[in-house]
Simulated scan of single mutants.
Amino acid sequence: MKLYALCDQELLDSKGVSVEEFVKTATSLGAKVIQYRNKTSDTTFIKQQLIQIRKLYDGFLIVNDKYELVEFCDGVHVGQEDLKSIDSDVSKAVKILRSVIKKDKLLGISTHNEHEIIEANSMDLNYIGLGAYRDTSTKKDISGVLGDKVEELAKVSVHPVAVIGGVKLEDQFENISYKVIGSGLLR
């Protein structure tokens, strides 16, 4: 199972950690993917952060939501609500995104239940995020914690699965390709 490091700007700011420090920690732990998430800053700042991470990290770099910045990274991750802001039909939203970011970039979406996973199975994706595994302080809008159900739900997906939400470094899974850790890297 590979480490997928979630670099959340709000979390970094609250802990007084720089992007450089986060990337150094993620790299030392063998992170194969870093996703940069920033829900509050303008596009120019996010672009600068992506450029800075790229200078420090040669693994896969994913941006959260800001598909217009895909040229500065290797792909995009989008949540369900953000997909619906593109189109109320999430399948159409993924088709629109794929037409923008092209086949040479990664595309992942968040899923939270079996229905969303089955829906994602017919989409042109590289992976799905599945969770939340357990409660987390970095996401206030978690509708349900899946706990051990993530293992069974992961079997339903035709795409590689990244388990999200409250995942710890020591957590082990059998049916999961990536464990996504954010705040757990900052201890």
Rank of each mutant, 00 (worst) to 15 (best):
E20Y: 08
S85H: 15
I86S: 02
H77M: 05
Q49I: 15
T44N: 11
D104R: 06
A31R: 06
D58G: 13
E21I: 08
D82V: 00
D65P: 02
I62Y: 01
S28H: 14
K95T: 02
D82H: 01
S91H: 11
K92F: 03
V76Y: 04
R54S: 10
F60H: 14
L50F: 04
G79D: 00
Q52L: 11
N64P: 05
K55W: 03
S18G: 11
Q49H: 06
Q49G: 09
H77V: 02
H77K: 04
C73F: 08
E71K: 12
I86Y: 02
V63W: 06
A120I: 07
A26D: 07
I86L: 14
V17M: 14
K15Q: 12
G30P: 09
D42K: 14
T43V: 13
I51V: 12
E21C: 10
I96C: 00
I51A: 15
I46R: 05
L125A: 06
K39D: 01
I96T: 09
E20R: 12
E21Y: 12
F72T: 12
T25R: 12
M123Q: 13
F45T: 14
K84A: 11
V33A: 04
D74V: 11
V100W: 00
N126S: 13
N64R: 01
T40C: 09
E21P: 12
I86R: 03
K105Q: 03
S41P: 06
L107F: 04
S85C: 08
N126K: 07
V23R: 08
L107M: 06
T27V: 15
Y36F: 13
L83P: 01
A120T: 07
R98L: 00
Q48N: 10
N38W: 04
T44Q: 15
V70Q: 06
D74M: 09
V63Q: 08
D124K: 03
E71C: 09
S18V: 12
I46P: 01
I53L: 05
V17N: 09
D104S: 10
F22V: 14
S88W: 07
D104N: 14
I101A: 00
I53R: 04
R98I: 00
D42V: 05
V17Y: 13
G75S: 07
H115G: 13
V78W: 01
I118N: 15
Y57L: 07
D58A: 10
Q80I: 03
V76D: 03
S41A: 12
K55I: 05
K105D: 01
K105Y: 02
L97W: 02
E116W: 01
T111G: 05
M123D: 07
G16M: 07
A31V: 07
E71G: 09
I62Q: 01
R54V: 05
S99L: 00
E116P: 05
S85L: 13
L106K: 15
T111C: 09
I46G: 02
Q52A: 13
T27N: 09
Q80T: 04
E20W: 08
I101N: 00
L69E: 14
L107G: 05
H115E: 15
I46L: 08
S91D: 13
T43Q: 13
E114A: 14
K39F: 02
E114Y: 10
